[in-house]
Lab assay of single mutants.
Amino acid sequence: LDITFHVDGKNIHVHGASEEVVRIIEELIKNNARAEEIKETLERLLR
């Protein structure tokens, strides 16, 4: 699975993920999660 995301100002662009995963990533970023935390969360979800 190949998910890429980047933050452009306040806009979060996520590619290669389901809508549910996109929402989770957006929440994590809004809550100022570190990249490592986001990665760990995604790995748990995608197991």
Score class of each variant (00 low, 15 high):
Leu1Trp: 13
Leu1Val: 14
Leu1Cys: 07
Leu1Thr: 11
Asp2Ile: 13
Asp2Tyr: 10
Asp2Lys: 10
Asp2Phe: 12
Ile3Asn: 03
Ile3Ser: 04
Ile3Pro: 04
Ile3Lys: 08
Ile3Arg: 07
Ile3His: 14
Ile3Asp: 01
Ile3Leu: 11
Ile3Ala: 04
Ile3Trp: 15
Thr4Phe: 11
Thr4Cys: 10
Thr4Met: 09
Thr4Lys: 04
Thr4Arg: 05
Thr4His: 08
Thr4Val: 12
Thr4Ser: 10
Phe5Leu: 09
Phe5Glu: 01
Phe5Ser: 01
Phe5Trp: 12
His6Thr: 13
His6Asn: 14
His6Asp: 09
His6Ser: 11
Val7Cys: 03
Val7Glu: 02
Val7Asp: 02
Val7Leu: 08
Val7Trp: 08
Val7Arg: 01
Val7Asn: 03
Asp8Pro: 02
Asp8Tyr: 06
Asp8Gln: 06
Asp8Lys: 04
Asp8Ile: 02
Asp8Leu: 03
Asp8Trp: 04
Gly9Leu: 03
Gly9Ile: 02
Gly9Asp: 06
Gly9Trp: 04
Gly9Pro: 02
Lys10Ala: 13
Lys10Cys: 11
Lys10Asp: 12
Lys10Pro: 03
Lys10Val: 15
Lys10Thr: 14
Asn11Ala: 14
Asn11His: 13
Asn11Trp: 14
Asn11Val: 14
Asn11Arg: 11
Asn11Thr: 14
Ile12Ser: 01
Ile12Ala: 01
Ile12Val: 07
Ile12Cys: 02
His13Met: 11
His13Glu: 11
His13Pro: 04
Val14Met: 05
Val14Glu: 01
Val14Asp: 00
Val14Arg: 01
Val14Asn: 01
Val14Pro: 01
Val14Tyr: 07
Val14Gly: 02
His15Asp: 05
His15Glu: 09
His15Leu: 12
His15Cys: 04
His15Met: 13
His15Gly: 05
His15Tyr: 14
His15Lys: 13
Gly16Ile: 05
Gly16His: 08
Gly16Cys: 04
Gly16Asn: 14
Gly16Arg: 06
Gly16Tyr: 05
Gly16Met: 06
Gly16Ser: 09
Gly16Gln: 09
Gly16Phe: 06
Ala17Glu: 02
Ala17Tyr: 03
Ala17Ile: 14
Ala17Val: 15
Ser18Asp: 08
Ser18Val: 04
Ser18Met: 03
Ser18Ile: 04
Ser18Pro: 11
Ser18Asn: 10
Ser18Cys: 03
Ser18Tyr: 05
Ser18Lys: 04
Ser18Trp: 04
Glu19Ser: 12
Glu19Thr: 12
Glu19His: 12
Glu19Asp: 12
Glu20Trp: 10
Glu20Asp: 11
Glu20Arg: 07
Glu20Thr: 04
Glu20Leu: 07
Glu20Tyr: 12
Val21Ile: 14
Val21Pro: 00
Val21Met: 08
Val21Leu: 13
Val22Ser: 03
Val22Tyr: 06
Val22Glu: 02
Val22Cys: 03
Val22Phe: 06
Arg23Ala: 12
Arg23Pro: 01
Arg23Trp: 10
Arg23Glu: 06
Arg23Asn: 09
Ile24Lys: 08
Ile24Arg: 05
Ile24Ala: 10
Ile24Thr: 09
Ile24Glu: 06
Ile24Ser: 02
Ile24Pro: 00
Ile24Leu: 09
Ile24Tyr: 08
Ile25Tyr: 02
Ile25Asn: 00
Ile25Ser: 00
Ile25Lys: 00
Ile25Gln: 00
Ile25Met: 05
Ile25Phe: 03
Ile25Val: 09
Ile25Arg: 00
Ile25Gly: 00
Glu26Pro: 00
Glu26Cys: 06
Glu26Tyr: 15
Glu26Trp: 14
Glu26Val: 14
Glu26Lys: 14
Glu27Tyr: 11
Glu27Gln: 12
Glu27Trp: 13
Glu27Thr: 11
Glu27Met: 13
Glu27Asn: 12
Glu27Phe: 12
Leu28Trp: 02
Leu28Thr: 01
Leu28Tyr: 03
Leu28Ala: 04
Ile29Trp: 03
Ile29Glu: 00
Ile29Pro: 00
Ile29Thr: 02
Ile29Ala: 02
Ile29Asn: 00
Ile29Arg: 02
Lys30Gln: 10
Lys30Trp: 08
Lys30Gly: 08
Asn31Gln: 12
Asn31Lys: 12
Asn31Leu: 11
Asn31Val: 06
Asn31Ser: 11
Asn32Ala: 06
Asn32Gln: 11
Asn32Gly: 15
Asn32Ile: 03
Asn32Pro: 03
Ala33Tyr: 09
Ala33Cys: 10
Ala33His: 07
Ala33Leu: 06
Ala33Lys: 09
Ala33Met: 08
Arg34Thr: 15
Arg34Ala: 13
Arg34Tyr: 06
Arg34Phe: 06
Arg34Asp: 13
Ala35Gly: 09
Ala35Asp: 05
Ala35Phe: 15
Ala35Asn: 05
Ala35Ser: 11
Ala35Ile: 15
Glu36Tyr: 08
Glu36Val: 06
Glu36Cys: 03
Glu36Met: 05
Glu36Leu: 05
Glu36Ser: 11
Glu36Phe: 07
Glu37Trp: 08
Glu37Met: 11
Glu37Cys: 05
Glu37Lys: 08
Glu37Pro: 01
Glu37Ile: 14
Glu37Thr: 10
Glu37Phe: 12
Glu37Leu: 13
Glu37Val: 13
Ile38Val: 14
Ile38Phe: 03
Ile38Pro: 00
Lys39Asp: 06
Lys39Phe: 15
Lys39Cys: 05
Lys39Tyr: 15
Lys39Ser: 13
Lys39Arg: 14
Lys39Gln: 15
Lys39Ile: 15
Glu40Lys: 10
Glu40Leu: 12
Glu40His: 10
Glu40Val: 11
Glu40Cys: 06
Glu40Asn: 10
Thr41Cys: 07
Thr41Met: 12
Thr41Phe: 05
Thr41Ile: 12
Thr41Lys: 06
Thr41Trp: 09
Thr41Leu: 08
Leu42Arg: 00
Leu42Asp: 00
Leu42Gly: 00
Leu42Tyr: 03
Leu42Ser: 00
Leu42Asn: 00
Leu42Trp: 02
Glu43Ser: 10
Glu43Gln: 10
Glu43Gly: 07
Glu43Asp: 12
Glu43Pro: 01
Glu43Trp: 07
Glu43Ile: 08
Glu43Tyr: 10
Arg44Ile: 13
Arg44His: 12
Arg44Glu: 14
Arg44Trp: 13
Arg44Asn: 10
Arg44Lys: 10
Arg44Pro: 01
Arg44Phe: 13
Arg44Asp: 09
Arg44Val: 10
Arg44Met: 12
Leu45His: 03
Leu45Arg: 00
Leu45Pro: 00
Leu45Val: 05
Leu45Met: 06
Leu45Cys: 00
Leu46Phe: 09
Leu46Thr: 04
Leu46Gln: 04
Leu46Lys: 03
Leu46His: 04
Leu46Trp: 05
Leu46Met: 12
Leu46Asp: 03
Arg47Pro: 15
Arg47Ala: 15
Arg47Asn: 15
Arg47Ile: 15
Arg47Lys: 15
Arg47His: 15
Arg47Asp: 15
